[in-house]
């Protein structure tokens, strides 16, 4: 037994809250605060890891980025992927949530199955879709041929590769949107609908003027979470297209990876990382404000 009624509380009691915060604080400083500061610093240097030379060059890395075809393409592809995937996932997720908000037989045990895709490792997802997308042996092209259509070069057609990746993301992450929106729908008390029906509203009008406003917060959360996540797009591109064909699926993350970990142009990679960081901070400022409002 410890005695806390001593004349003066011992050190570890008085500074208890500091002591227990310190481990997490130190890890966060070493593994996140320092790297963020370091990457900003690095972006002002020409730093080749291979040759070990390091020279301050001011904003030159950023100027170079602004005229680098791959970086610009990566930037526009990333925005395109983010927009397409987010919109598609919200539409499908909302549809699924409305469907599962009605009563039907088997709903209880079908629900966990709908969540499956988002539990899987992205690499597993890529493996399956890569096989289904295969030009010669893929099941999708087999079906297309069977119904008399011509097969599609899903991942190898420059005009289609990005959309094919969006489709995979749609399959994998719609469940998350579904989960959030379903929670929103189920938090609406049934009486509200009854009141709406008494007032003569029905079908689409009920949905548009009662349901949507009531799940606005959930909707916004889903939008922001999907934007933040799709903006990182790296693993699918790495595994399935490598940024190609040509630069059709180049993304910012992939650009940073290649410059930093293949060519060892650490300064250039750092500058691209800073651009990405700024974009993410701008996007998430909205989210952070929401969360703080909800948490406090």
């Amino acid at each position: 037994m410890t005695r806390s009624s001593a004349r003066r509380a011992p050190f570890h009691e008085r500074y208890f809250h500091y002591l227990i915060l310190i481990p997490a604080l130190l890890i966060m400083i070493a593994l996140t605060v320092y790297p963020v500061i370091n990457v900003v610093q690095l972006s002002f240097y020409r730093y080749s890891y291979a040759r070990g030379e390091k020279a301050f060059i001011g904003l030159e890395n950023y100027y170079r980025l602004a005229s680098d075809r791959f970086f610009l393409k990566g930037l526009s592809n990333t925005f395109q992927f983010t927009a397409l995937a987010t919109v598609a996932e919200l539409a499908l997720g909302l549809g699924l949530a409305l469907l599962f908000n009605t009563k039907f037989r088997g709903r209880r045990w079908l629900l966990p199955l709908v969540i499956f895709p988002m539990m899987l490792s992205t690499m597993v997802v890529c493996a399956v879709w890569g096989a289904m997308y295969h030009y010669d042996y893929g099941i999708i092209n087999h079906v297309l041929r069977a119904v008399g259509l011509s097969p599609v070069r899903w991942l190898f057609d420059p005009n289609l590769a990005l959309q094919s990746l969006v489709l995979i993301d749609l399959w994998q992450w719609t469940p998350m949107v579904f989960l959030i929106l379903l929670a929103g729908l189920q938090s609406i008390p049934a009486e509200i609908y009854e009141a709406g029906r008494v007032d003569g509203a029905s079908g689409f009008r009920l949905f548009r003027h009662m349901t949507l406003p009531l799940i606005k917060r959930h909707f916004l959360l889903a939008v922001l979470l999907r934007i933040i996540d799709t903006f990182k797009i790296f693993d699918k591109v790495y595994a399935l297209t490598g940024g190609g064909p040509g630069d059709a699926t180049e993304t910012i993350s992939l650009y940073i990876y290649r410059e930093g970990f293949r060519y060892f142009n650490l300064g250039r990679a750092a500058a691209a990382a800073v651009v990405m960081l700024i974009a993410v901070i701008l996007i998430s400022a909205v989210y952070v404000r929401q969360v703080i409002r909800g948490h406090a």
């Binding site: 996140t32 990457v39 933040i228 903006f231 930093g260 750092a270 990382a273 990405m276 989210y287």
Partner: peptide, 15 residues
């Protein structure tokens, strides 16, 4: 909260 949103590749080099 911010760290949860930073893409992992951004701080990969210093790490």
């Amino acid at each position: 909260l911010l760290v949860k949103m930073i893409p992992p590749i951004v701080i990969a080099i210093p790490l």
